[in-house]
């Protein structure tokens, strides 16, 4: 009881100082423990919210774009691209294409040798061809080989007069390109690649050229690698 009276007396005497001090202390505590932390958290979370919103919008657009793509059409396009530039060595397919082109340009294959692969990353293997045909058609042969619906490049050319028969003997070194499949097909956050107008046109050309040569395959079928033409390509 005495203590209470003392406190009241003390407060009455010094209330002009005690009250403002209590108000100041309370305000400081509220600012330090409530207002300031909450404000800081508000600001940082706002940045997080904006990031999340941006990511959500990006993924929504990505999902919509993916939904518009026809899986069947996409698979066909991938097939055309892989036929032209496969992930492995396709000797049978290449032999068929070369045989078809040489027959079409009037050349006969004397020998066909397959070499090893060179380089890493974008790889290729070499093919040595020995042919006999008309010298006038060699340019046509070379252009046809490089425009074939299967990526290959002429590495070396040797033309000489064929002995004993009319025509020229051609030794060609070809570099047939292939490339392993990419390791990474993109993550959820990665942007979708877009095909340019040129690439769409290229796909149409590939489809036309491959169907003409007969190397397209239907769904679930074994790829057609047996070439049309002579039974014995070395005749």
């Amino acid at each position: 009881m005495m203590k209470k009276e003392d406190i009241l007396k003390f407060y009455s005497k010094y209330r002009l100082f005690v009250f403002p001090a209590v108000v100041a202390l309370s305000s400081l505590l509220l600012i330090v423990w409530v207002i300031l932390p909450q404000t800081i958290k508000l600001l940082t979370n706002q940045a997080t919210r904006n990031d999340l919103l941006h990511k959500s919008q990006f993924l929504e657009v990505k999902a919509q774009t993916l939904e518009t793509l026809d899986q069947g059409d996409l698979s066909k396009k991938v097939e055309y691209a892989l036929n032209a530039y496969p992930s492995g060595k396709d000797f049978g397919n290449v032999l068929g294409i070369i045989q078809r082109i040489t027959t079409h340009t009037g050349f006969s294959i004397v020998s066909f040798n397959v070499g090893g692969s060179k380089g890493s990353g974008d790889q290729n293997y070499s093919i040595s061809l020995q042919l006999i045909g008309s010298r006038q058609l060699i340019s046509t042969l070379l252009n046809s080989l490089e425009k074939a619906p299967r990526l290959m490049k002429v590495d070396s050319i040797e033309v000489s007069q064929a002995t004993g028969i009319q025509g020229a003997e051609v030794n060609l070194g070809l570099s047939v390109l292939f490339s392993p499949l990419p390791q990474n097909f993109g993550t959820v956050d990665s942007p979708l690649p877009e095909l340019s107008q040129n690439e769409e046109e290229l796909l149409v050309r590939l489809a036309g050229a491959q169907e003409g040569v007969g190397i397209t395959r239907g769904e679930g079928e074994i790829p057609l690698t047996t070439p049309r033409g002579k039974a014995n390509p070395f005749e």
């Binding site: 999902a63 993916l66 939904e67 793509l69 899986q71 996409l74 698979s75 396009k77 991938v78 691209a81 892989l82 032209a84 530039y85 974008d122 425009k147 990526l151 490049k153 390109l177 490339s179 499949l181 990419p182 097909f185 993109g186 959820v188 979708l192 690649p193 095909l195 040129n198 690439e199 290229l202 796909l203 590939l206």
Partner: peptide, 22 residues
Amino acid sequence: LKDRQASLVLLKNRLTTISQNL
């Protein structure tokens, strides 16, 4: 839809080289 994305990535990967060489 990751299969479609994978197809698209592979297609782009191939077409880039094909368009340079074909």
